[in-house]
């Protein structure tokens, strides 16, 4: 539903149960401004200058359609931002998990994050139920003798799990590609440890 006169276009954008109104108008000969309203109040404005050689009315229509798309993608990214940042702008557990997963994908190939604990609180658990409490029991038994756990590696269903304990994080990775030599498994630990300690700096 949209109305058009020579210098402005009105329309609506429906996102879920919310309806926004959008008005795109020409300001002078070279500027086009699009305003998005919700319950009569402007919630977002976009503007652009009319490219040289393009008719103002033609560009107005194009810009109007483009703003609809931009507004929806802005809404989605704002929602994602709210999930990954808290009110102080710090990364939330979800945000941290997302960032760590992205970093692992980029820096160490063939690895999948299976478990993440931040300051003792589980954030993500993709492991067999019961394995983590069992490991915690075993680790706490040996803590008295050998101190904190740094790393553990063992095979499950033909693949390898690597547990890494940092200052704030306990994480577990599954080696996706088959590495049967212990030396290869050990070689993957150093870059992982560096990545974990780098990521820990981002935690409050």
């Amino acid at each position: 539903m949209r109305s058009v006169n020579g210098f402005s276009i009105n329309g609506k954008i429906c996102v879920g149960k919310y309806t926004f109104e959008i008005q795109t108008e020409a300001k002078g000969d070279s500027l086009v401004v699009s305003s998005v309203f919700f319950k009569g109040r402007v919630v977002k404005q976009y503007s652009s200058s009319v490219p040289l050689g393009e008719k103002r009315e033609v560009f107005l229509r194009k810009f109007h359609e483009e703003v609809k798309r931009r507004f929806i993608s802005d809404l989605i990214s704002q929602k994602e931002k709210r999930q990954v940042l808290d009110s102080n702008g710090n990364l939330t557990a979800t945000g941290f998990l997302k960032k760590l997963t992205e970093k692992i994908e980029k820096s160490v190939t063939g690895l999948r994050l299976m478990y993440l604990e931040i300051n003792g609180n589980p954030v993500f658990n993709g492991l067999v139920p019961g394995l983590v409490p069992l490991l915690s029991d075993f680790i706490s038994l040996l803590n008295k003798v050998y101190g904190d756990l740094e790393v553990a590696a063992f095979p499950i269903k033909g693949r390898w799990l690597i547990f890494l304990k940092g200052e704030k994080l306990l994480s577990c990775f599954l080696i996706e590609n088959h590495r049967d030599l212990p030396a290869l498994r050990v070689s993957i630990i150093k870059p992982l440890k560096e990545l974990i300690s780098e990521m820990e700096k981002e935690l409050p």
Binding site: I139, Y146, L149, A152, F154
Partner: peptide
């Protein structure tokens, strides 16, 4: 062929 290991601050299993 697949020994498992735990590395602690002051020892290994």
């Amino acid at each position: 062929n697949n020994p498992l290991f735990f590395k602690f601050n002051r020892g290994y299993v």
